[in-house]
């Protein structure tokens, strides 16, 4: 089945606007009557990913494919990449600067939260090239 496909640019310039793409996806999913529990998990996971892109990678792109039974999200950036993905997945591990902590993030919960709220998550990252975060959330 052909999915509903959306692509959003996530600006890396301004932390104020981080989360706009996730908000739009949430609104869209509500409008089309998607499964309520899935909407919440999709919104949280994508929001954490969006925040990460703004904090670490100066923005990027969010690609969202909405199928009746699942939503697939790819967040891609051309930032510095993640040196140690396993380490980055540990709760509490963060390389975010102090000014990000002052904004309520950078507690080392972003990637663990994405894993918690998705049914499948995969990270491809190369230092100096960028990062791709794939996530799938089932619709039921």
């Amino acid at each position: 089945m052909t999915p509903i496909t959306k692509r959003y640019e996530v600006s890396g310039d301004d932390f104020t606007h981080a989360g706009e793409a996730s908000g739009k996806v949430k609104t869209l999913l509500k409008q089309i009557g998607y499964h309520p529990d899935a909407i919440r998990r999709i919104a949280i996971a994508m929001y954490e990913g969006e925040i990460n892109m703004v904090i670490h990678a100066n923005g990027g792109f969010a690609n969202v494919d909405i199928y009746p039974d699942r939503v697939e999200i790819l967040l891609e950036d051309t930032g510095p990449g993640i040196e140690d993905v396993d380490k980055a997945m540990e709760e509490g591990y963060s390389t975010a600067p102090d000014e990000v902590r002052a904004l309520g993030f950078g507690a080392g919960m972003g990637l663990p939260n994405i894993k918690k709220y998705t049914d499948d998550m995969r990270i491809e990252s190369a230092v100096g090239v960028g990062t791709k975060v794939y996530m799938t959330i089932k619709g039921q």
């Binding site: 104020t16 925040i51 309520g104 993030f105 919960m109």
Partner: peptide, 24 residues
């Protein structure tokens, strides 16, 4: 005051008390 903690643990129909004042 940590939004990631809220995102990790908060359940439905909740109210958030915070000292964090920014659009996030």
């Amino acid at each position: 005051d940590m939004m990631s903690d809220a995102l990790a643990f908060v359940k439905d129909q909740a109210m958030l008390l915070t000292g964090l004042v920014n659009p996030q």
